[in-house]
Design a binder for these strands. Structure first.
Lengths: 333, 333
DNA sequence: CAGTGTTCCGAAAAGGTTTTCAAGAATGTG
DNA sequence: CACATTCTTGAAAACCTTTTCGGAACACTG
């Protein structure tokens, strides 16, 4: 299988390249019969236009770069899928580059992407803290998941405060009153924000955190286990635990199970992230908060398209997360 | 920040575009002093060559497509990283396309990639069973993880039989004699192969499977739990369990823990896949088999490079997996 | 029939780079 | 000094497509 050029198609159809081009691109100034002939010729040669040449002339490569630092692809992949959806895979293809948290590698990738003349860039951070701006680039950039530190950039993030509120709200609606919050590294804004949202919602209800404070620690099952043991010790009457991540929630469930404390009848547990391998397979399956990242990806693509057409935005836009109910939470009684 | 062209550089350096090109590409027929001037001009304008134009003329786009069906990116991401490493990120960028298991979407992506004039294609399956060949394409293709059904294609896969052998071998070296195997869907060649390797190694040792047979089921924690309960019922003297995946292993550990059966002192457990979120955080951390996928990705890139230079291969090549020992296995006593 | 408008097509330029080839400059040789 | 070599350089072609613009053919109108 070799590659036919437009000239081959034109020759076979007995027209000029110009006409062939117009025929295939649906330009009106070509007779229906001629167009038909050209289309047939193109099919016969299984012609597919050289996007490089197209890009050279239209000044649009039809590609975007997705620059990530998220080693596992846990966040980037859903964002990528959403973006692919929004762009339409035949219109735009995406270069996925993983900088692996290394600034030098990021610079490298950036250079490569720019020289590939990508039409735009989506930058996905590994964690939802602000990250350094890429600065002024010849193409539009959208920061997703992790916002840029430059307010002139456009950043799209998920609503961690709202997520915390939603989680606690759900527990309250389940009739829980003694709600504890075990979460990860306090150095992560995600941990702070989720905790803040949780406390806000509790306060509205005139409640306080069971255990008296937020249990900050690490983003690991082990911490979930350890914190839960301490919590049960200090506050055995707890009736709901909001875990700052699904990993932590797994640790929580583990210890509750070990202590023969039934979930959800005695203690309800809610996680965060909707990391399906953890949430779906747990015992019981985990109610959790989903970041709706495909949606974020779609929006990122739309914003990028708009920016390519000159409609540029800036600032941080926050998008709602959503509650996924499974069996680890239920109304009391 | 705008984009300077080679012409701008040439003008600034007071030479022709031809010379500028040669100077920047390290061609020998240009005076050192001239080259110096051109390089400085290029830096001053922060010139970066238009890869589209380069590709148009050199007939090499410097891109490859990674076509996957692996929704979570669990297998594709490491392969992508390996490939990126081997290509060198400044030489070659990769388009990641997820077909989401849909043949039509795959065709779509394929068209798009070909019209982008990718220099080669890496096809990653969602599971290690043979998959339909893409047929004859104008660019070289390497199938990774899931082999093509056409022996004329080149496929690189990981050694599941060897993995099964390695797992059981490790358990035997730990002094275990009553070894059971709980694994996933028997419709997966991965399940069959791993089981075969396990049984082979047992037979060499004159042993038989504890429980009398392979416990096929599903790739889930729930099945791991269920099978373990049945196993303990039927064969309480088991001293090691080889789980066909880390998910299953988590279920196994869960039930053993529940039954107060110590791991590894009474029963050793080994998983498969080295899916780090599951394996590292389990209690105890899980000994498992790693597919070495970055390595597979590197090899895929190398084979692709070779094929682009005309050195094409075919058939199925199998690559060794490796044992990752953590704390869920240990010598008896 | 002259003039006007429409419809359809093709020649050519453009986009940014690499590469070939010829010519000019510098150097060496006899 | 004439000639042959070796160095440097630049003009131009090529890659493949899109788009502009002018021209040809044709149908109407008055």
């Amino acid at each position: 299988m070799s590659r036919a050029t437009l000239r081959d198609v034109a020759k076979l159809a007995g027209v000029s390249v110009a006409t062939a081009s117009k025929a295939l691109n649906g330009q009106p100034q070509v007779r229906a019969e001629t167009r038909e002939r050209v289309v047939r010729a193109a099919e016969q040669l299984s012609f597919s236009p050289n996007t490089l040449a197209q890009g050279l002339i239209t000044q649009r490569s039809g590609t975007v770069g997705l620059l990530t630092s998220d080693l596992e692809g846990r966040f980037s992949i859903p964002i990528l899928m959403g973006a692919e959806d929004a762009f339409g895979s035949d219109q735009t293809s995406v270069f996925l580059c993983d900088a692996r948290g290394d600034a030098i590698r990021e610079k490298h990738h950036l250079r490569a992407l720019l020289s590939r003349r990508v039409d735009g860039l989506i930058v996905v951070g590994a964690r939802p803290d602000t990250r350094p701006s890429l600065g002024d680039l010849p193409v539009p950039v959208v920061y997703a998941y992790a916002p840029s530190d430059d307010p002139a950039d456009l950043s799209l993030i998920t609503d961690n405060v709202g997520g915390g509120r939603t989680a606690v709200d759900h527990l309250i609606r389940c009739g829980r009153r003694r709600i504890a919050h075990i979460t990860g590294d306090p150095g992560y804004s995600a941990a702070q924000d989720r905790a803040r949202g949780a406390v806000e919602r509790l306060t509205e209800e005139g409640l306080e955190l069971a255990g008296g404070e937020v249990w900050f620690g690490m983003w690991s099952e082990a911490w979930g286990r350890g914190a839960t043991r301490m919590l049960l010790d200090r506050c055995p009457e707890v009736d709901a635990i909001f875990a700052g991540s699904d990993e932590i929630a797994r640790g929580v469930l583990d210890v509750l199970h070990e202590e023969r404390i039934d979930v959800p009848s005695r203690v309800a547990v809610i996680g965060f992230d909707n990391w399906s391998v953890l949430a779906v397979n747990s015992r019981p399956p985990l109610t959790t908060i989903d970041h709706n990242l495909e949606h974020l990806g779609r929006i990122a693509a739309q914003r990028l398209s708009a920016a390519m057409d000159g409609v540029t935005g800036s600032g941080v836009e926050t998008f709602p997360v959503r509650l996924i109910t499974r069996e680890s939470t239920a109304p009391l009684r």
